[in-house]
């Protein structure tokens, strides 16, 4: 084990896979000389040189398309888009090409590539630089979608993504790059897609959170325990396509309540999708409607106060949990003698 920051874990994943496989290369805007807009590719140019760490012009659709073409010819590109916001300029190559090509050509060619993109709000970057597009990519058949929340998962999932034969949308959260965590060493430490992590066991409610919201969910769960005597199970799906629905359903069948936390917009979101899946498949187990905690349905405002109001926090999660448990538990500090003391 080594203690690494998220950005270091991601860099190590790329470096290890590049040492292991000549066909892996990295390209994107400012990934080389500048060392990455978020310093994720720091040091890679020195080790691997310009052939394999390629600075590109600002041409999102073409960068992704070049990756698709190179992947079709047998290379394994890792394309960094500076942020998810700019991935909108590459949607044609992502959806109509990377995702569609293997299927539309009947499996006669594959597109083994990774498209990394950091996103999320919280840095006062305003409407054009704060998006969360997990739901957008989750919708597209043919793509795998990864959204790690810890350094260990980030490294193991990125290594799996690079080795995988399918196009992967690898979403990172800008606020998590600096967090530290224990990361197992070993070149073949990989995390398979479709395996959720139970971050905290509990019996009263299931909270599902992704990316930064996985951490918010955990902190909310701790407070729920302390302040309200509610035992929350926290699940981080880690990948949205494929989604480890089994683990989530098993938890909901145990707790009979579910709250889903994401930073993206509410309509057609990750939570909207998951709550439908839970309702369809575990309706009889539910004691309360599934609750969603999402980013506000607006373009991210710049003002710090406004921005914070638009992003979910622990108290929003606690509120949602309490809405699902209303009446089911004695109020905290009540006469029952339970709860916090």
């Amino acid at each position: 084990m080594a203690e690494l920051r998220m950005r270091e874990a991601l860099r190590d994943a790329m470096a290890e896979e590049m040492r292991r496989d000549e066909s892996v290369f990295v390209m994107g805007e400012d990934v080389g000389v500048f060392q990455g807009a978020f310093k994720v590719t720091e040091g890679l140019l020195d080790e691997f040189g310009e052939k394999r760490i390629r600075d590109t012009p600002i041409s999102e659709n073409t960068i992704v398309g070049v990756g698709v073409g190179a992947a079709m010819a047998g290379l394994r590109p890792v394309v960094e888009l500076m942020t998810v916001n700019f991935s909108l300029l590459a949607l044609d190559q992502i959806v109509n090409h990377a995702a569609a090509i293997p299927y539309m050509f009947n499996g006669n060619v594959r597109v083994p590539m990774v498209i990394r993109m950091p996103g999320g709000g919280g840095h006062q970057l305003g409407p054009t630089h704060s998006h969360s597009f997990e739901a957008l990519y989750l919708q597209v058949p043919g793509l795998l979608v990864a959204c790690p929340s810890t350094p260990a998962d980030a490294k193991a999932l990125l290594k799996a993504s690079i080795r995988d034969e399918n196009p992967v949308i690898f979403i990172e959260h800008e606020s998590l790059y600096g967090i530290k965590g224990e990361v197992p060493e070993g070149e073949d430490e990989i995390l398979r897609f479709g395996e959720a992590a139970i971050r905290r066991e509990g019996s009263d409610v299931t909270i599902v959170g992704i990316l930064k919201m996985a951490h918010v969910a955990e902190r909310a769960a701790a407070e729920l325990e302390e302040e309200h005597g509610i035992s929350a199970e926290v699940i981080d799906p880690r990948t949205l396509r494929p989604l480890d629905l089994d683990t989530i359903l098993a938890s909901v069948k145990k707790t009979n309540r579910a709250v889903i936390v994401e930073e993206g917009w509410p309509h057609g979101g990750v939570g909207a999708n998951l709550s439908t899946l839970i309702t369809e498949q575990a309706f009889d187990y539910l004691d309360a409607p599934v609750q969603r905690v999402t980013g506000a349905d607006v373009h991210m405002p710049y003002s710090r106060r406004m921005e914070q109001a638009a992003i979910p926090h622990e108290e929003n999660v606690i509120e949602a949990v309490l809405a699902t448990t209303e009446g089911a538990f004695p109020p905290a500090g009540g006469n029952s003698g339970e709860g916090d003391s």
Binding site: N61, T62, I63, V64, G65, V66, G67, V68, G69, A70, A71, M72, A73, G74, L75, P77, Q93, H97
Partner: peptide, 11 residues
């Protein structure tokens, strides 16, 4: 067009 550049890059 971008795909062509990618194929050429592989070569």
């Amino acid at each position: 067009l971008p795909l062509a550049a990618g194929l050429a890059l592989a070569s």
